[in-house]
Simulated scan of single mutants.
Amino acid sequence: MTLCTSTLAQWTVNERRYLHQYPELSGEEYQTAAYIRKWLQQWQIELIPCESPSVVGLLRGTDGSKTIALRADIDALPVNEEGDKAYLSKNPGVAHVCGHDGHTAILLAAAKWLAENRGEVRPNVLFLFQSSEEMLPSGAEALVRQGVVDDVDAVFGLHLWQPLVKGKIGISNGSMMASSDDLRIVITGYGGHGSMPHETVDPIFVASQVITAVQGIVSRRINPMEPAVISICRMESGTTYNIIPNTAILYGTIRVQSEKTRQLLVAELKQTIEAICSAWGAKGEVIVDWGTPPVVNDKEMSQYVAGVVADHWGEDVLCYVEPVMGGEDFSYYLERKPGSFIFIGMGGDKSAYPHHHPRFDIDEDVIPTGVELFIQLVKQF
């Protein structure tokens, strides 16, 4: 039986389009939060104290011996949206180009149905409308630190996922997404005239050695069965064409699928970079801004999701996805409680651009699937 009716589906699409027009950056989602609170209060869902601008609601079940948490991220990205759709962002330089507007609307719709049919809801349901998924400090980490999920028995989240073909629901029994850490390498040399490099310690030359060497760490120091990525994405050095500068700064990202590999990779980075810099008379400093841990699904909870999907949509809709190297702060919930993160496939003509692209848009055809999945996960828990 389909619980997300055409009327509820259209309501969800309308809400998503409204949210899409008024995006807010991480940590600044105050209008979005006020909008969410208005609906929760209208549906007589209890508001749970938490740090603003996140919003947490609690619906008490008829049994209440178990509590299930459902999460949506509410923040947008610093992107100028492109395209000609009627619901383009009205906030210049800010846009929902990852799908969080869809996630928020889906969770609102699930809350609406569950509140209006609370006599059919046995467990308590905690609705996590979470700030700051895209930027640090993490909104998920903050809610965990505040103890919001301490009494939760399981936690579930979903992502409308463009790389997965439309019509599929993707899960993993373990590693699902990578950690995401920011890397900064400061190389200090001794500048001088470009025509007399022998009188200098050229930090740009040393940086070129470092850039090559860090890829060797992945290929020669990390188990090839363990996914790992180091990408140097930005370099700052120098002021003009004939002056060797004093410093060069490299910026990059580190992505891995396990905490053990994460720690090993950083240790190898520090040892390798300090040694290379020292060999050329420079000083190398490695600074890691620790970000989100890997997303590792609980096997039992993922199998629960698989059973719900297979029973409701059929085995052919379910697929087991390979881990991806993108990061997600849903990992903080999974470090504390059993749960599962779920991909709702929407790849195709209606969602042709990748996440974070200025022309990205979600395929609204899959919105009812997300709403139905959240409701069924609660009803069958």
Rank of each mutant, 00 (worst) to 15 (best):
S180D: 07
W161T: 06
G238T: 00
D365T: 15
R234S: 08
A267L: 12
A110G: 10
P293F: 05
I249F: 00
Q44R: 14
E268R: 11
S278I: 09
G339K: 06
I222K: 10
S195F: 00
G61R: 05
Q41L: 15
F360M: 08
V321P: 07
G281E: 00
S6M: 14
I273G: 01
A69G: 10
K66P: 01
D311R: 15
K112N: 11
M135K: 12
D63N: 14
V201E: 04
M225E: 07
N80G: 00
C233L: 13
A207Q: 05
S65V: 01
M1A: 15
G192E: 03
R145N: 14
G326L: 09
A95P: 00
E134R: 08
A109E: 03
Q42Y: 13
W313Q: 11
G192L: 06
K66L: 01
C277R: 06
S219Y: 01
G327N: 07
G291W: 03
A213T: 04
V94R: 07
V13C: 03
I106V: 15
Q21D: 02
I211S: 08
T240E: 14
V229D: 04
C319A: 12
I367G: 08
G291Y: 08
H355V: 10
P358N: 06
G189Q: 08
W11N: 12
S231G: 07
W313E: 05
H198P: 00
M135T: 13
F381E: 02
R17Y: 05
G119M: 08
D298P: 05
A109V: 11
A306W: 04
F374I: 02
G57I: 04
T369I: 14
I342G: 08
D153I: 09
C98A: 03
I375G: 02
E226R: 04
S65P: 02
A142W: 06
V296A: 05
K350M: 13
D181R: 06
T212N: 11
V366Q: 13
Q31P: 01
H20T: 05
G102M: 03
K166C: 06
G252E: 00
E328M: 11
V256E: 01
E335G: 12
N297T: 09
G326N: 13
M135Q: 13
A9K: 06
K299L: 11
R220N: 07
L3I: 13
E82K: 15
I375C: 09
V229C: 09
K260Y: 08
L136P: 00
V155R: 06
N246G: 14
A105P: 10
E199N: 01
V79T: 07
S195M: 00
N91T: 15
E199C: 03
A111S: 15
H356F: 14
T369M: 12
D365F: 09
W11M: 12
T7D: 13
V371I: 10
Q376R: 15
H159T: 00
K379G: 07
L143D: 03
G192C: 08
P368V: 02
T188N: 11
L373N: 01
S54L: 12
Q146A: 14
T239L: 09
Q215C: 04
G194S: 03
A111P: 10
M177T: 02
T104A: 11
G370T: 03
N117R: 09
R118P: 06
Q21Y: 06
D289L: 15
D289A: 14
R262M: 11
G57N: 02
S138A: 13
S65W: 02
V317Q: 00
Y22A: 03
Y22Q: 01
V295R: 01
Y304P: 03
